[in-house]
């Protein structure tokens, strides 16, 4: 497996920016007002983040995000009650403090495990690296048009199974209509905008579309194309991206979808990129 990266290094800080901003706001409100207000603010922010995570869970059925959701809800609950615990000196009781600390530690370790094993990582970068792997020529040729790349012989139910699998493993975000099933690969850092619909229309993003006749077409956004170090042959790149998903669907149909996940893991792309 080649580890030569074709994408530019990821220097985006959007991912860690959200929790860091929350801590910064907590610090500021606690400093300007008092600790109670600070904790309440942090509680509201965590609850907001939990709502986002809940939406991700509903949208993708990713199990790792359920753990993150429970953790965020617990932290939020703790934030709302912490000032009272301090006032009433609950934390002086060892068994009380130990219980809270154990829950925090348990979920913290579990969450770290999920992050390190890439169970809650959006796999957009892996997809783009896999698509670029066989492309050696660099002659640009970018166009905003989609490209028909082939045909698959799947029933709608089989396609839906594949799409659910892809969503569950955060390979791509699905958009399902009566005529089309579109998969949009999401890179880490882009997930907030894409999931919450704050980014541009998904049709302007990079996507792989399966219509009800099994025709597969691909569109690569200019932003994602410019993320490659070299101006790769665009025609071949589109074909390759479509093929990545066709191969993935083929493996998933045989019940070996996890092999595709392993293939992405083998790329050893950073857990936050």
């Amino acid at each position: 497996m080649s580890l030569v990266r074709k994408l530019k290094p990821d220097r985006s800080i959007t991912g860690p920016l959200v929790p860091l901003s929350m801590l910064l706001i907590f610090g500021l409100t606690a400093w300007i007002f008092n600790l109670r207000i600070g904790f309440y603010t942090l509680g509201f922010l965590t609850a907001g983040y939990a709502l986002y995570t809940l939406y991700v869970v509903l949208r993708t059925r990713n199990q790792g995000h359920i753990v993150a959701l429970v953790y965020q809800l617990f932290v939020g609950y703790l934030c709302f009650n912490f000032p009272t615990y301090i006032e009433r000196r609950y934390l002086d009781r060892v068994e009380f403090a130990l219980a809270y600390f154990s829950v925090l530690l348990f979920f913290g370790v579990l969450l770290a495990y999920l992050v390190l094993t890439r169970k809650i990582k959006w796999r957009g970068r892996e997809i783009f690296e896999l698509a670029a792997e066989p492309i050696e020529t660099a002659n640009n040729g970018y166009t905003s048009r989609p490209r028909p790349v082939g045909k698959v012989e799947y029933s709608r139910q089989e396609l839906l199974d594949f799409v659910r699998f892809a969503a569950r493993h955060l390979v791509a975000l699905p958009y399902i209509t009566s005529k089309n099933i579109t998969l949009v690969p999401v890179k880490m850092g882009d997930e907030f905008g894409r999931v919450l619909g704050l980014s541009d229309d998904y049709r302007d993003a990079t996507w792989v579309n399966f219509d009800m006749d099994g025709n597969v077409s691909v569109h690569i956004s200019q932003k994602d194309y410019l993320d490659y170090r070299e101006p790769l042959a665009f025609d071949e790149l589109c074909q390759s991206l479509g093929q990545v998903f066709i191969d993935f669907a083929e493996l998933q149909k045989k019940g070996e979808g996890v092999r595709f996940i392993d293939r992405m893991d083998d790329l050893r792309i950073g857990i936050f990129s």
């Binding site: 040729g141 970018y142 166009t143 905003s144 048009r145 989609p146 028909p148 219509d211 077409s217």
Partner: peptide, 18 residues
């Protein structure tokens, strides 16, 4: 298609034509 034509293509709702 000509390179750098500066044309903007809008895909039809059906997804299989411009």
């Amino acid at each position: 298609e000509k390179e750098n034509a500066g044309a903007r293509f809008t895909v039809a709702r059906s997804g299989d034509s411009i």
